[in-house]
Amino acid sequence: MRKSKPLAVMLGAVSVAAMTLGAARAETFKPECFSPAADNKKTIQYDAKKGPYKIALVNGYVGNDWRITAIQSAKAWGARPDNAKLLSDFKVISVGNDSAAQIAAIDNFIAAGYDAVVINAVNPTAFDAVVKRAQKAGTVLVTFDNVLDSDKIVQVNEDQFELGRMKAQAVVDGIKAAKGDVSGQVLEISGLPGNSVDRDNHEGMRSVLDKYKGLKVIQVVGNWDAGTAEKGTADAIATNGKFDGVMVQEGAIGALHAMQAANHPVVPIGVDAGNGTRQLAAKGKYPGVTAAQAPAMAALALEASIVLLEGHALPQKVFLPIPNKANADLVSGTDYFPDLPPNFYTTTGYPQCFPPFKPDELLGQNASNNG
């Protein structure tokens, strides 16, 4: 790939310059993988540093299947021989839903001379000071999934607004096909409050739902957790009766179990792509879509940190494609796996970036700290 030349404005060890989207596509590393978001305005490039590298991933909350798989993906990435030879030290830790603890962990890795720290942020707004400290120390920071509201570091994500919009649109289309109009009430199971992903998914859903005055939206917090989503769905059905459509950010297997337990009719759903979710969606013939915020994004963020340490330029705001499939088109053995656990995540990588993980690569890792 063509390597970008040093850019104009120096911030510590990093060069940053505003440029057009077209220029970003032409000049950045491996654009078929690290594609700039539509509103990307900058590239980021660091001076090349000789490896092997010391890299850490600092996660926040880990109490759901998605986060567990993200940590497994990170460790599986580090275990691949081509990556392992680039690493002199590789730590993966989770600190809980506490921004102060996460910032302290990042500072500890900066002070210990780590070359890069990858972050799934507890919230999007509390990290400006630690970003400055990292720049001063020459430490590369990359965020993924729950990214920071900052244009000073590379963000690796999917379009969270579009992910929410896609799910809501599938539900609205299903309601219209069933009833001839878009009316009634729908259930929105949101994520973990205070995170950018929760905010952006919610806003994407509402960009569709708010167009229809005949729709009543009941929202409950799901924390991206199957158990929480199950209880929230059961309570919502008990309080409000049946729904005409259901949208879940993550943990939809719980919502579907609650619907089945309540003998809720089959309605359009816009949900995640977990193995158990897709099994239930296919077996129950639920109209709608399963769309993934793929946990393997953690590995892509680690890959991005290596790219930056090697001196290549990346878009400041990377958007990966959203893996999705209409529920009517789900195929056993390809889109979901009856012989694997329900909490296995079916989208195990981004083929345009690196070979997707095989199930045994992920299932052979755990989610415990190794820091």
Rank of each mutant, 00 (worst) to 15 (best):
G63N: 13
G180M: 03
P315S: 01
P341H: 07
E158N: 12
V122F: 07
P315G: 00
D151S: 14
A70Q: 13
Q352L: 12
N369C: 10
E310F: 05
N59D: 13
Y286D: 00
K211G: 07
V197T: 14
P351R: 05
S35T: 14
T239N: 00
D89L: 14
E310L: 08
A84N: 09
A367M: 08
K85F: 04
N83S: 06
A326V: 08
G63C: 08
F243C: 00
S207D: 01
G12H: 11
I68W: 05
G12R: 06
G227S: 14
T69E: 07
A296C: 09
G204W: 04
P6K: 03
L86F: 10
V16I: 14
A24K: 15
V16M: 15
D339G: 12
A116Q: 15
D39T: 09
V289H: 04
S73T: 13
G311P: 08
D145T: 09
L320H: 00
D115V: 10
V142I: 14
M259R: 02
R199E: 13
D65Q: 15
A258K: 02
T125N: 13
H312R: 05
I110M: 02
I71T: 12
T43D: 11
Q102M: 06
A13C: 15
G51P: 10
Q185G: 02
E158W: 06
L280A: 14
V9E: 12
R67W: 11
Y53D: 00
A299M: 03
A299W: 06
S332I: 10
T277L: 02
K3V: 15
A37M: 03
L363V: 12
R67T: 13
Y114R: 12
D151T: 11
I106D: 00
A76L: 08
G311R: 04
M205A: 10
Q160H: 09
G60S: 11
A292H: 01
V95K: 02
N123F: 06
